[in-house]
Design a protein around this nucleic acid. Structure first.
Length: 488
RNA sequence: GGUCCCAUCGUCUAGUGGCCUAGGACGCUGGCCUCUCACGCCGGAAACACGGGUUCGAACCCCGUUGGGACCA
């Protein structure tokens, strides 16, 4: 709960545009979003681009794309820190004028040397305050340092961790403005959070040590200090901070791998937050239930398998008409498109039949191919299993009976299988398997009647006939080429 | 090295002093369903890091130990 019930909630998501939106950042954005929505507040997007070396336009675009894809809307911004440089300089000057900050002309080399000396003597490697009381002209190249007040306990009540306190004596006289006039991270953040009237700072755990540096700056600025909530980290399977080497970590990589945005968001929200035993949440439920009280304080390990399960669940429950265009986007180019491949209704039916088996949209796209493309790749193992010489005795009568069917619909097709099954004294499974491989190239597919219906009369018969030809041809998995493709 | 954080099944977690013989989910696994594979359904194995306190009573509160991590250098 918030400690300021009467003031509207204002939160911000403040990424540095140095790369893609990664999973940790996405979860931070998500929690901010849900917190703002839950409280009917405002979410601001701020791009912390003062590190000009590492910030790129591409990264800015990637972050915005990632947020839009995840359906995380913001109410204000994006505000760019580089558009506020004058403001930081003005306030730094103001702090100097009021004695909270001072100019420092110590060079990096000098500082490095002193740091080494201090370490050699077993002292903490901090700035020694040499320039604190010098009168340094604004004309000489200098940095601006914040005057730390020693022998103080900086305490705050973290909304997730509870009371936290730090000894200010251990803090440095932080540089707030570099020689080139650019603000440092800790200064720009505080100026912005103060100016933008942020009420709750919800951010990653990695900033927890920054908080006691920032609080004195809020005070010196005469600004209200927001509430802080530090989210636990997301680890990779080796329990270190999630990074590239743990595999895909960018949000957009999951889009490319065929994940649904709400599945990813649902997975991410359960990393650290819980609502009793509930695993699946609609967006409305998340907004209704989300709170900081039920955010845990221990880090969590990213588990791709659970995400995959959630994705499968979301695919299974998504509407066919929503799914179909998403699948089409991920479809590889068709070599010989069937006439019905361009029919949107046909594509919807394909998705409808297959979605229960797919864990990703990419899989769904792959499963769709036999119903959209004339050319068919037959899996060699499937061929060996189901299209051996003995399958001729099954495929032959089925082909004949299906060919003479006056009407291509479910009941007559079923009757064909029933009758042939009785005649040959074979169970449906034994009949279905060769036909399945003939039509889909795989031993796994939806029910055989559904497959026949969806493939349609013409392509079904063509493929069964082709399979018959194959079944009559000697075949060895080991000796021939692995792709028994392009039969049609 | 300094500062800080964290600790329930392999993983995500429920649990806020008695409802805990510790619940749910993923994964694993046995079975049912079944034309294959999934889905679904029913079942199983699997955890309170350790040691001290406090208390009539502790997964839950306190201290320590151990282990892990983050930040700064």
């Amino acid at each position: 709960m918030t400690s300021r019930p009467n003031i509207p909630v204002r939160v911000r998501f403040a990424p540095s545009p140095t790369g893609n939106l990664h999973l940790g950042g996405a979860r931070t954005a998500l929690f901010n979003f849900l917190f703002a929505r839950h409280h009917g507040g405002v979410m601001l997007l701020r791009i912390e681009d003062t590190d000009r070396e590492r910030s790129t336009e591409a990264a800015i675009a990637a972050i915005l794309d990632g947020m839009r894809w995840l359906d995380l809307t913001w109410d204000e911004g994006p505000v760019f820190q580089t558009s506020r440089l004058d403001r930081y300089r003005d306030l730094a000057l103001d702090l100097i004028a009021r004695g909270h900050a001072y100019r420092c002309v110590c060079t990096p080399d000098e500082l490095e040397e002193r740091r080494k000396d201090a370490q050699a003597k077993g002292l903490p490697p901090r700035y020694d305050g040499r320039c604190r009381d010098r009168k340094i002209s604004a004309d000489t190249p200098h940095v601006v340092r914040f005057r730390n007040i020693p022998d103080q306990i900086v305490a705050f009540d973290d909304l997730i961790r509870g009371p936290l306190s730090f000894d200010s004596g251990l803090l440095d006289d932080l540089v707030i403005l570099r020689t080139d006039g650019m603000p440092t991270y800790n200064f720009a953040v505080v100026v912005d959070d103060a100016d933008m009237k942020i009420t709750h700072v919800i951010r990653g755990d990695d900033h927890i040590n920054n908080t006691p540096r920032q609080i004195p700056i809020f005070r010196a600025l005469g600004a209200d200090i927001p509430d802080f909530a530090h989210l636990p980290m997301i680890f990779g399977s080796d329990r270190t901070k999630l990074s590239k080497r743990h595999g895909a970590t960018s949000v957009m990589a999951y889009r490319e791998m065929g994940y649904l945005p709400h599945a990813l968001a649902n997975y991410l929200v359960r990393l650290g937050w819980s609502h009793k035993d509930q695993e699946i949440f609609t967006r409305e439920e998340l907004i209704a239930h989300f709170d900081l009280d039920h955010v845990g304080s221990s880090p969590s390990v990213f588990n791709p398998e659970k995400l995959l399960w959630l994705n499968a669940h979301y695919i299974k429950n998504a509407s066919d008409t929503v799914l179909s265009p998403l699948v089409s986007e991920l479809l590889p180019p068709l070599s010989e498109p069937l006439p019905q491949a361009t029919d949107p209704d046909h594509r919807v039916r394909v998705v409808s039949l297959l979605k229960g088996r797919a864990k990703t949209l990419l899989e769904l796209a792959e499963f769709s191919l036999p119903y959209l493309d004339r050319s068919l790749a037959i899996d060699p193992v499937a061929r060996e299993k189901a299209l051996g010489p003995e399958s001729v005795f099954i495929l032959e009568p089925i082909f004949v009976a299906l060919s003479s069917l006056p009407e291509w619909s479910a009941d007559p097709i079923k009757n064909v299988f029933t009758q042939i099954g009785e005649a040959l004294n074979k169970k449906l499974g034994e009949l279905a398997q060769p036909v399945r491989v003939a039509l889909t190239g795989k031993t796994v597919s939806p029910g055989i009647f559904d497959v026949l219906m969806l493939a349609g009369r013409e392509i079904s018969l063509v493929r069964i006939e082709a399979a018959l030809a194959l079944a009559r041809t000697p075949f060895s998995v080991t000796s021939s080429s692995p792709t028994g493709k392009d039969l049609s």
